[in-house]
Design a binder for these strands. Structure first.
Lengths: 248, 248
DNA sequence: GCGCGGTGTTGATCTGGGTCAAAGTTGCGC
DNA sequence: GCGCAACTTTGACCCAGATCAACACCGCGC
């Protein structure tokens, strides 16, 4: 979690992923200076809604720390998570006035935001920003399509294994928490949120997690702390070839 | 279908969606001239594979006429369609060497292609190309996420209705084939392809289409020719609010 | 006209995951 | 430390859609 110190003018840039990854990788000095003018931070507590689908959205931004979800809900209450936002992920769509999805913080969350219209102006004047966003959007599109295979064709057990694989990988790239070869991480989602991501019920999620534990594919400490003794085994359970699959 | 006449140098630009929609909308003359150098057409017959997942892909392009599908296949043969390419849709990913999905022509198909590396160079020199691609990619991402809701949370009947809605709409925007209020179109997909799109079996697709016909939601002439007497009824069956939903 | 392969329909049966219900676990405010 | 609420697990039963099977339709080559 970002402390006040790190939010001071001189420090924040080093901490802000969008500055580094989406906008600033190849920025010149004058662009950096302009960015300062339109940038601000927002903090949310676990459970808080960042924005409701349909609401006016006058900013874009990226996750600095914490986790948020993107969900769609039908009138009768069925909900489907369509994206998981981890640190460095970009939120919001240049050129669209209203949010298309509910964005909800599932942990305490810090976002680095940019007012939209100046951001768009900056983008139109700075070619590599659009290119960087294109690259990121294409990655998201690949992830969404990979997830379509999970939702459409995988069994409940494969779905759980796929989700654990993704979390393990994303988490590893941030925290590098491995203990003598084991991969160790905390589930950032409740069983219900996992169910909404996977197109299952929470009961089925619970049962399949129990089954994977019973079969030694994962180890559980409490409800959330997971150890994966053999990642290739987990990938196999997910129905991916060991060489990549969901991680492409 | 494009005839030879329309492929001559002076006519083709008017017919080529990418030129108009993805690249040329705001091009200057010199850019148009450069584009000519790297542009070529490819034709495919129904059933032909445009490119296999994993193969080297040295072009990007867009569909001029006909329909293609984007599919993923697991080792055991389960397949999931992750995209439907209709005229004007863009194919390929700047900055990636190999195809991520199988692309298959489901009807006779004409594509307008650009050799990739000159296209990328052009893109880096012409800001609005990257911006246009970003816009298109964001639209595709929205479509993919909309489809995640269909795959994860809708019933078989709702899935069929959702697919019919999408085809009706896309088709209408191209052909405007409505007869005194009715929406009329031909299904461009086999029952099996529909099943692969919807995460169902072909038997279930067949049964649900029969059920929708029996209930008067659609009318069928032969296996493929569909009439929708009441579009809002179809949208209701799809589980979308009448105001947009899948069409957002 | 006939046979054949691709496509589509329909029926019978099975089953993975949903639904309903109950009880266990954890953490927090008082 | 108690009580409550949120979260999780587990069991019993059910049903939507898968699977297996048979047959109908249709265009095409001979």
């Amino acid at each position: 979690m970002l402390n006040e110190r790190s939010l001071s003018v001189s420090q924040e840039c080093a901490e802000c992923p969008i500055r580094h990854r989406a906008v600033c990788a190849r920025c010149e000095t004058d662009e950096l200076e302009r960015l300062e003018e339109i940038k601000y931070y927002r903090k949310f507590e676990a459970g808080q809604t960042v924005i409701w689908s349909g609401d006016r959205m006058d900013f874009v931004g990226s996750v600095v720390s914490g986790i948020a979800t993107l969900t769609q809900t039908m009138e009768d209450g069925r909900t489907q998570m369509v994206g998981l936002l981890l640190p460095s992920d970009f939120v919001g769509r240049p050129g669209r006035a209203n949010a298309a999805y509910d964005v909800v913080a599932t942990t305490d969350l810090v976002m680095c935001c940019f007012r939209k219209s100046p951001f768009e102006k900056l983008m139109s004047e700075t070619p590599h920003i659009a290119q960087r966003l294109l690259e990121m959007t294409l990655d998201e599109l690949d992830a969404a399509r990979e997830w379509m295979l999970v939702l459409g064709r995988k069994t409940a057990r494969e779905k759980i294994a796929s989700l654990l694989s993704i979390i393990a990988r994303r988490d590893a790239s941030i925290n590098m928490t491995t203990t003598h070869g084991n991969i160790v991480f905390d589930l950032p989602l409740t069983r219900e949120a996992m169910a909404d991501y996977l197109g299952l019920t929470l009961e089925t999620v619970s049962r399949q997690i129990s089954a994977l534990r019973k079969d030694g594919v994962i180890e559980l400490e409490g409800k959330r702390h997971v150890t994966v003794p053999d990642m290739s085994r987990l990938l196999e359970e997910a129905g991916d070839d060991a060489d990549g699959g969901v991680f492409a």
